[in-house]
Design a binder for these strands. Structure first.
Length: 554
RNA sequence: GCGCCUGUAGCUCAGCUGGAUAGAGCAACUGCCUUCUAAGCAGUAGGCCACUGGUUCGAAUCCAGUCAGGCGCACCA
């Protein structure tokens, strides 16, 4: 584990300080990286160059001092100073043995860490309005949110995944009316559809369900009453669909939080009242305003409109206030990039309530452009012909869909090519990674058929058999897995896991092609089987974080 | 006009709180299946890290400005 390397350097640094060789009070964070070239050893650190200004000495001079101390540490066979002041560390083979043992022993737990221990974090994502099916953009948010939650859990954080349901307001009324009108149409009435009504085919489906369930019951009901009934029915039906889509996408939430419940519990009124007491509320032109400009927002925002109805923003601040009150150490919101204009006003709430808005982290998901063989697929809600998550999932499969969404960092636009995602060709990264796992399981199966027993664990004698550069590279990469998880969690960048896995597969496949695992040499066979087993375990653990399956056969 | 995101090989993208000669896949060209899965592998070629300044031992990375693309600037949700 590279964590172990940090310990080695820390220990050497402490020794140098005790001996009076280093004086600086505040030591910089220790950064270790895999050496880029073989001659630079196994690991390198730029520590001396960071320390130089503090010590007021030349980097190389400090490097010599630290290197001398590192040389005395366990597992270190050699430690050199190079270039402008890099410290290159060469480790004993037994170090790698401890890594492999750790992987084989830990199994599914390998990679987990505790950097997040004791920290309660809420991740809120998707939160799409229940007025229609999830589209492809929601899918990206779902993949990022769910994977981030998995990664942070693996890093020791206490994670709650939450979905906020916008189940009140005009959109719900529009939904109710849209379904109601379709219902009347089904009963043979001539209907004029208002400009703002929802026109997707799913509206007709819900109307048909209403008809099946209630017959002509609402044919002559007063419109307002009917719309209320239809709104409720449609909202819960569409939410059920969303929940099903997400479930099939491998996403399950810990909590579903209803906007309506905020109003019912009086939390919206409470929040406004608290802001009023704090002096950030005023009336103007018949509306009630929140003075967000006090906190850097572009303009003040309306909470209660002149017609007496509350804005979406009013419930949103009540919701975030409630999140704060629930005692999370950190709140993560995952929003579509088209909502970035809301950041300032939500942060204003935190500041107005006297909370540190740094506790809130907003991840913006950039847009997804759907392509087919490089040609854009028509999108846009206008005609109700937008591409749904369900359609894409059905076409390319859950695994490819999730994996693809995690192949880009969130703040980069993403071109999703359906044909590439479907293709069973080497240029499709999903298959490349899954194939790595399946191939190894197949090799292990082959060995077992031949009656070869995989040893329980590594010993030095077996490790000596793994004397190729490719094998050392693989083991080093396996060793960095826990740290990749940790950094992925700390930086909240789940795509790092995807790249880690592509790199792992990229190390394994060439190795496989060059070397035979099962041979006449019993020790060599055992050693390589153990290495392969370790690779497949790490691949499986990584894929599990992404919510992508690790098939035994392909 | 203001704000946010993006700009790295022909294409799609990595590049971890600044580090040693900037990486991968695809496309192109040359090869590899009687051997544990060819959904794979080996090799060749490909670069003013958008541009200009600044910060320092050191910049694709940080700062300022410029240019280009996307998105957002409601008493909408």
């Amino acid at each position: 584990m590279r964590v172990g390397i940090v310990k080695i350097v820390e220990s050497a640094l402490a020794a140098a300080k005790n001996a009076g060789q280093i004086k600086a009070e505040k030591l910089p964070d220790i950064i270790i990286e895999k050496s880029k070239k073989e001659e630079f050893g196994d690991f390198s650190t730029n520590l001396a160059m960071l320390l130089a200004p503090l010590e007021k000495k030349a980097p190389r001079q400090i490097a010599e001092i630290i290197a001398g101390n590192i040389s005395k540490e366990k597992y270190v066979v050699k430690c050199e100073v190079a270039g402008p002041g890099f410290i290159n560390i060469f480790l004993d083979k037994s170090y790698w043995l401890s890594i492999l043992e750790d992987i084989l022993k830990s199994g599914k737990d390998y990679g987990k860490g505790n950097i997040g221990a004791g920290k309660k974090v809420q991740v809120e994502f998707v939160s799409a309005n229940p007025t229609g099916p999830l589209h492809i953009g929601h899918g990206r948010g779902a993949a990022v949110g769910d994977t981030l939650a998995n990664v942070m859990k693996a890093a020791g954080y206490d994670i709650t995944k939450e979905y906020y349901i916008n189940d009140v307001g005009r959109q719900m009324e529009t939904l109710g009316r849209s379904v109601y009108l379709r219902y009347l149409e089904l009963l043979g009435k001539e209907i004029q559809f208002p400009e703002d009504s929802y026109k997707g085919g799913y509206i007709k489906d819900v109307a048909r369900d209403m008809l099946t369930k209630f017959g002509e019951k609402y044919k002559d009901t007063p419109e307002a009453e009917a719309i209320s009934v239809f709104s409720k029915f449609a909202g819960s039906a569409l939410l059920k669909n969303i929940e099903n889509d997400l479930k099939d996408f491998g996403v399950e939430f810990d909590a579903w939080y209803s906007e309506k419940s905020l109003h019912e519990k009086g939390l919206v009124a409470d929040t406004i009242e608290e802001l009023r007491k704090r002096g950030f509320i005023y009336e103007s032109e018949g509306a009630l305003w929140f003075k967000t400009t006090e906190f850097g927002d572009d303009k003040d925002r309306v909470l209660i409109k002149a017609d007496g109805s509350k804005t979406y923003f009013a419930s949103d601040i009540a919701y975030h206030r409630d999140k704060i009150d629930r005692g999370f150490d950190s709140l993560i919101d995952i929003w579509g990039a088209d909502h970035h204009g809301y950041e300032g006003r939500v942060r204003a709430l935190f500041k107005a309530l006297g909370h540190d808005d740094q506790a809130l982290k907003i991840i913006f998901i950039q847009l997804v452009a759907l392509l087919r063989n490089g040609v854009p697929v028509a999108m846009g809600k206008r005609e109700g012909e937008f591409v749904t998550l369900r359609q894409v999932m059905d076409e390319v499969g859950k695994d490819a869909c999730r994996f693809f969404f995690l192949m880009r960092k969130s703040d980069a636009h993403f071109d999703f090519d359906l044909e590439l995602a479907k293709s069973q060709a080497p240029e499709n990264p999903v298959y490349y990674v899954q194939y790595c796992h399946a191939r190894i399981r197949s090799i292990i199966g082959f060995a077992q058929e031949k009656g070869i027993k995989i040893p329980e664990s590594f010993d030095l004698k077996l490790l000596e058999k793994l004397d190729q550069k490719e094998e050392a590279d693989i083991i080093k990469h396996l060793a960095s897995f826990p740290e990749v998880i940790e950094r992925s969690a700390v930086h909240m960048e789940p795509h790092r896991i995807t790249f880690y896995l592509m790199e792992l597969a990229g190390l394994f496949h060439p190795y496989y092609n060059k070397n035979r695992v099962v041979t006449e040499d019993a020790d060599l066979t055992a050693a390589r089987l153990l290495l392969c087993d370790a690779i497949s375990k790490v691949a499986a653990n990584g894929l599990a974080l992404l919510g992508v399956s690790a098939p035994e056969k392909m």
